[in-house]
Write a protein that binds this DNA or RNA. Structure first.
Lengths: 126, 126
DNA sequence: CGACAGGTTGACGTTAACGTCAACGGCAGA
DNA sequence: TCTGCCGTTGACGTTAACGTCAACCTGTCG
């Protein structure tokens, strides 16, 4: 349970390049501290990175991941801002529900494809 | 229940451009018939397009969608080819399971974010 | 006949998300 | 002191997935 990480620590842990991590910082998704010239990552920054990568696996753009990250540390803004944040949250939820449905259907399809494939192999061996 | 479609029929139905559809054809994902110079799409081609778009919503690349399409009309190859197809199927299944897990976690997170947001709004109004 | 909506093929432009490379600084070990 | 290793900042290259535009054909409506 380290309390801080170097850039290569994170790169190794998540199997990405340091260039990628710096790129996320350029885009304003990460904001590590500095020790002299070097970047130092707190567990909070590491969590942000995890969120980004999870977003990637779900086909989210970095912009979308950025807005997801922002949901985690709200700016304690006014009601308008909170309403807009709430709207974003519900938008993402709808997105995820669509994906859930897509996955369900595709799972069924793949299951059938698998069966057909196994049948064909069995027939071949007969 | 039309038995064939023009390129703009499909573009309108799925809310994409004709350029996009032609692009998929360039990449070998679609293979419409021709009536003179114009493209004619059968229901089977339309289904392929649906598969591509579903893949897109799940963050699949066109290459991945291509291999998914190929699972639907197997080339009735030899056992080796079938085995490799089976491997691909299971790979996609694993991919989907990872996505399912990601979605579950993100749903919970968003639910909490939503609650925090609602609480903050309530506090603001108090 | 004219024009107009739909189709076609290139060819080039664009954006996101990095990869690659050059040129440099700092520090630990032999 | 020199050799690596890890880090840094630009700057430019690359790939996927289209968008945009020009130049053209083709059927049909008034």
């Amino acid at each position: 349970m380290a309390t801080e990480y170097s850039i290569s620590d994170l790169a190794a842990e998540f199997d990405i390049t340091t260039r990628t991590i710096r790129f996320y910082e350029e885009k304003g998704l990460l904001a590590p501290q500095r020790s002299g010239n070097s970047r130092i990552y707190t567990p909070a920054e590491r969590t942000k990175l995890k969120l980004i990568l999870r977003g990637k696996r779900l086909g989210f753009t970095l912009e979308e991941s950025r807005s997801i990250i922002e949901m985690y540390d709200p700016e304690h803004g006014n009601t308008d801002q909170l309403q807009s944040l709430l709207a974003k949250i519900r938008e993402k939820q709808a997105h995820l529900e669509q994906q859930l449905h897509d996955i369900e259907v595709m799972m069924v399809d793949l299951g059938e494809a698998e069966k057909n494939c196994l049948d064909a192999i069995a027939a071949e061996e007969a």
